[in-house]
């Protein structure tokens, strides 16, 4: 066990999988000698060679298409988006070519699409987005969004080993901001299983990615007032861990749904529907949503600050719900 940042943990997971399975290779823009815009593959090309760390033209559809083609020959490609915002350029390849292939014609597509998403770094409208819902809504895709270094390492491994296309969302705000003990031994975190990040009896917050840490900060404040938050880190957004969602609601009877993505059509709506289906009678208060605004991600720091869900939003809404 050694300390690793969220970024290093992803690098380790990817490196270890490439070491142990020669059918894994990386493909993307500037990932070779430069090591990627965020240095996730720094040093990889020197170790694994140019055949397994492939720089491409700036062509996201070609990256996904080529990764899919290579997967058809039995390899496990890991394709990097320099920023997740550019995933829109490859939308058709992902949604129509890759995600449907097993259903339509029985061809598995064991590829990973990974890259940085999320705001809080003043990246503006094209370098801060959270594109998960386009793909949560795409049958055939799995979507993973880790919040901690250990989960990031364990989940990148599971994503690579999965026989299905997995969208692996790395929150760029967390890359070098969080650090923890990460197992160096071979371990994996299963896809489709949520995690109790913090136990609490009074109310539940269901969230994922960077917002887990926002929820944690709020929980620390609320604990001093005697309000104990339970934080559920979903980790996988598709398929959702319905059991974990239901369990926490049955335990605390009050729930806040929190995400950095925008509100309309965001995951919170789906979570609310699941709670309605599975635990309606257990609710002792309204389901509360805390999300970003329904706008593009603004650039200027005061604007972005206003746009993003904040600790104080969680504290305020939790107090209100607690009293309900």
């Amino acid at each position: 066990m050694a300390q690793a940042t969220y970024l290093e943990a992803i690098r380790q997971g990817l490196w270890e999988e490439m070491e142990s399975d020669p059918s894994v290779f990386c493909i993307g823009e500037d990932i070779g000698i430069y090591g990627g815009a965020f240095k996730v593959t720094d040093g990889f090309v020197h170790h694994f060679g140019t055949q397994r760390v492939i720089d491409t033209p700036i062509a996201e559809s070609a990256i996904v298409g080529a990764a899919f083609g290579a997967a058809l020959t039995g390899l496990r490609p890991v394709a990097e988006f320099q920023f997740m915002d550019f995933i829109g350029c490859a939308f058709n390849q992902i949604v129509n070519m890759v995600a449907k292939s097993h259903y339509r014609w029985g061809a598995p597509a064991p590829l990973v699409l990974r890259g940085p998403c999320g705001g809080g770094v003043h990246g503006g409208p094209f370098h801060s987005q959270n594109p998960e819902m386009h793909f949560v809504h795409t049958p055939g895709m799995k979507v993973v969004a880790p919040a901690t270094p250990s989960d990031a390492k364990g989940l990148i491994k599971s994503a690579i080993r999965d026989n299905n296309p997995v969208l692996f969302l790395e929150h760029k705000f967390l890359y070098r901001r969080i650090k923890e003990e990460v197992p160096d031994s071979d371990y994996a975190v299963p896809i489709g299983k949520a995690r109790v990040h913090r136990e609490g009896r009074d109310l539940s917050i269901i969230t994922y990615a960077a917002m887990v840490h926002t929820a944690q900060e709020a929980a620390d404040i609320l604990a001093k007032e005697g309000i104990e938050l339970e934080i559920i880190d979903l980790r996988t957004l598709c398929p959702l861990d319905r059991e974990a969602i239901t369990q926490t609601v049955k335990k605390t009877n009050k729930v806040i749904l929190l995400h950095e993505d925008t509100k309309t059509g965001g995951l919170a709506g789906e979570l609310a529907a699941i709670i309605n289906e599975e635990a309606f009678d257990d609710l002792d208060g309204p389901i509360v949503r805390i999300t970003a605004l329904d706008t593009p991600v603004p650039f200027s720091p005061p604007l972005e600050h206003f746009f993003l869900p904040k600790v104080e939003d969680v504290v305020r809404e939790a107090r209100k719900l607690h009293k309900y």
Binding site: A62, I63, G65, A66, G69, A70, L72, N92, Q93
Partner: peptide, 11 residues
């Protein structure tokens, strides 16, 4: 959309 895919098969 088949064009990059066939390139990828070759790759």
């Amino acid at each position: 959309d088949l064009l990059p895919v066939m390139a990828g098969v070759s790759l």
